[in-house]
């Protein structure tokens, strides 16, 4: 089977500065792939590039058989192809209700019944969202906002879910809960590209991992192998 996502020599940046200097990675169907790296390594830029929000300056992004870079697929079309993102910092719509936030996640869909059923699924997955469904998104706690961000991304029924730092700033038991959800989603068949500062948790849940340093992939291996690699342990696992 061809990879669900194949990134080849991706280059991107902001203004005169290049941030990504030729990133290559793949995600196979059904995989969780972790991407770890220090602050400023270019992880968020990579994900934004995949979502079409940041324009690629070189290289290719092939998703589900479609060459997004060659076809110049605009950001608002990427979701329709099955690539959804829960962004860094959650980016909840603060003055839309929780329910409206979820509906925005299904913006590209026209099957009202299917959307309603998926809202129900989201509420089953995160019961707190059901309780708060008529509250403004901005009034949720950080952990609740993270749940909403993930649920919102799932509302488009993606083939690949991009998660940018879902554990950022959350209490340890919430982080465990979020990672349980990621594992469960994957068990149900969802492919995930997971960006994390919390390298240990990420590599434990992932099948494979990539290490990014200043816009380049410096290591890539099975997650278990990366967890055992002394260089990774020293640089990213605090040992």
């Amino acid at each position: 089977m061809p990879p669900l996502l194949a990134v080849e020599k991706l280059e991107a940046g902001y203004g005169p500065i290049n941030v990504l200097h030729g990133i290559s990675l793949t995600v196979e169907p059904g995989e969780i792939v972790a991407m770890i790296g220090a602050n400023g390594a270019g992880k968020t830029t990579t994900l934004m590039c995949l979502s079409g929000v940041v324009k690629a300056r070189g290289g290719r992004v092939v998703f589900d058989g479609r060459d997004l870079t060659a076809e110049k697929v605009p950001a608002h079309q990427v979701v329709r192809l099955g690539l959804a993102q829960s962004p860094e910092g959650r980016k909840i719509f603060p003055r839309l209700t929780v329910l409206e936030n979820l509906q925005m996640g299904a913006f590209t869909r026209t099957d009202a019944d299917g959307v309603a059923a998926d809202v129900e699924k989201a509420f089953t997955m995160f019961p707190i969202l059901r309780e708060r469904q008529h509250q403004a998104g901005g009034l949720l706690s950080g952990g609740q906002q993270q749940m909403l961000a993930i649920a919102r991304a799932l509302m488009s029924r993606p083939k690949l879910l991009l998660l940018d730092e879902p554990s950022l700033g959350l209490a340890p038991q919430i982080v465990v809960q979020i990672f349980d959800v990621i594992r469960e989603l994957n068990r149900q068949g969802m492919s995930v590209l997971l960006v994390e500062q919390n390298a240990r948790m990420a590599l434990k849940v992932a099948h494979r991992g990539y290490v990014l340093e200043t816009g380049r992939v410096t290591f890539s291996d099975r997650a278990a192998a990366l967890l055992d690699d002394p260089r990774i342990r020293a640089a990213y696992l605090g040992e």
């Binding site: 979502s51 079409g52 929000v53 605009p74 950001a75 608002h76 079309q77 990427v78 979701v79 329709r80 959804a84 993102q85 962004p87 980016k91 909840i92 719509f93 603060p94 003055r95 839309l96 409206e100 509906q103 925005m104 996640g105 913006f107 590209t108 919102r152 991304a153 488009s156």
Partner: peptide, 24 residues
């Protein structure tokens, strides 16, 4: 309306709106 909600969403966070598939 959907367009009305998309307007509010875009006003509140244009990047997130793009990630939802909204043509900003």
């Amino acid at each position: 309306t959907t367009l009305g909600k998309a307007m509010r969403a875009t006003a509140q966070n244009p990047t997130a709106a793009q990630l939802m598939g909204i043509n900003v």
